[in-house]
Amino acid sequence: MTDSSPILKVEGLEKTFGAVVAASNINIDVQPGEIIGIIGANGAGKTTFVNMVTGYLTPSAGSIQFEGREMIGLPPRKVTQAGISRSFQVSQVFSTMTVEENILTALAIASNTGLGALRQMMRPELVSKCNDVLERYQIAQHRDHTAGTLSQGVRKLLDIAMAVISKPRILLLDEPTSGISVEEKFDLMDIVMTPLREDNVTVLFIEHDMEIVERYVSRVIAFYQGEIICDESPTEALADPKVQEYVIGTSHPHAKKGA
């Protein structure tokens, strides 16, 4: 597992909110190209972990090294510029804009360099790139719909499509399939994961559905009360008694038990 130098190295990470310990002693080495599933009951600290890695929250202690560089203290935009991107548990889109304008906004920011910001927004090369993105994420038919009116699934796709535009080397997805019907979940994950695999992007995604976890990840990290209780292959993780008890057993009685 540690054959090359890790792309992301998290050591001794801690976060407390008053008396609540949302993360304690988190240690993770992530190798380039790994696809990791993060599981855990609600309130286990998964989102807090993503928030710390992406600069939204400052940890109380510990270090986060991305490609050898310390990330703690950088604001989200610097983390994005460094090559880490994310999607959100509650999709963050520009709700008064159309789907196309959302993507164009993301493309414009990604292609920005200094005075480039004074260039015209609606330029042909952006529009053609935008069409590619809309096709790739299969949301072209929603191009002119206002983002605030989209169905949950399309909104998730839009959120993820925007996160990927900065060409991150690590992508963190916070519950990409939550609120989406069982039939649509796999389609959505296929649409999202295919281009990421092609570009060899390292992915960490938070997921409650164990079928999705088994299908897409090579490694599972389970959180319980702010701590990592298991970091193994999917088969081993789902058979792990602690995972059975604290993750699968508690929060999601309907989730399929380990295969």
Binding site: R77, T96, T105, G116, A117
Partner: peptide
């Protein structure tokens, strides 16, 4: 200015500052 990328971000910021920041601006 309003037609430029920077000016366009005007609406984007009103809509969702978190997203703008996470896109790298």
């Amino acid at each position: 200015y309003l037609n430029s990328t920077l000016g366009w971000m005007t609406t984007a910021i009103r809509d969702n500052e978190v997203r703008v920041e996470y896109l790298g601006l």
